[in-house]
């Protein structure tokens, strides 16, 4: 697989070799495949879409076809080292529920999402249109995204839910943004933990 997203390296750096990984909304399994290659993880993907499940089967990825909107009831507490949700949180109805579930079945959660407060998106709104970009490729009428939130919003939610932000990296394309990420970053990646457990 030649295609590799810049966020894959960030995620890989947060993962120790041989960990148990759950990837929620795993698509065609390319992230898990990458983590298998560079971190030898024991990986499982969760995916609802039949086409993507088929792609995972072709890619030799362990995929479990369930609807994660219904929670992760079948998964034991703390079984996974990391539970990943890459660029899917904005398409989930049950935002708080799935974050809680991720930190129940995993020691840590890794979440990435498009930052709707990115300056180009603000510019689009000022110009009178919903943003369409590389990270938000859909039109308003056909987007799978249903939750429109920003880095600042997500920080607030974590504080409210008692979720510990262990690390946060923000990007504009593949460039790391340290100053004013809520304005200058198009995508954010978070490493999250339960605030009642020691930092890992």
């Amino acid at each position: 697989m030649s295609f590799q997203r810049y966020d894959y390296d960030v995620i890989a750096n947060w993962i120790e070799p041989g960990e148990r990984i759950l990837d929620l909304g795993c698509g065609d399994g390319s992230l898990l495949r990458y983590l298998g290659e560079v971190r030898q993880v024991r990986g499982y993907g969760v995916e609802k879409d039949p086409e993507r499940v088929l792609a995972c089967a072709r890619n030799g990825i362990n995929v479990i076809q369930i609807d994660m909107e219904e929670g992760l009831a079948g998964f034991d507490d703390g079984f996974f080292d990391h539970v990943i949700m890459s660029l899917s949180l904005q398409a989930m109805h049950n935002t708080q529920g799935i974050l809680k579930e991720m930190l129940r079945v995993g020691r840590e959660a890794v979440v990435s999402f498009p930052n709707f407060a990115y300056w180009r998106h603000r510019q689009a709104i000022l110009n009178g249109h919903m943003p369409v970009s590389k990270n938000l490729p859909h039109q308003w009428y056909n987007t799978p995204n249903i939750r429109f939130f920003t880095i600042a919003d997500f920080d607030d939610l974590c504080a409210q839910e008692g979720i510990a932000i262990r690390e946060r990296l923000a990007f504009d394309e593949d460039k790391v943004i340290t100053d004013e990420p809520n304005f200058l970053a198009s995508v954010a990646l978070y490493r999250l933990g339960r605030s009642d457990t020691p930092t890992g």
């Binding site: 499940v53 995972c56 990825i61 362990n62 995929v63 479990i64 076809q65 998964f75």
Partner: peptide, 21 residues
């Protein structure tokens, strides 16, 4: 079937599961 899948996963077996419509 999911009972089998979750038990296999929790036994660290490689397992894939699909529910065909």
């Amino acid at each position: 079937s999911r009972e089998i899948v979750y038990a296999l996963m929790h036994s660290d077996r490689r397992v894939s599961y699909t529910e065909i419509d």
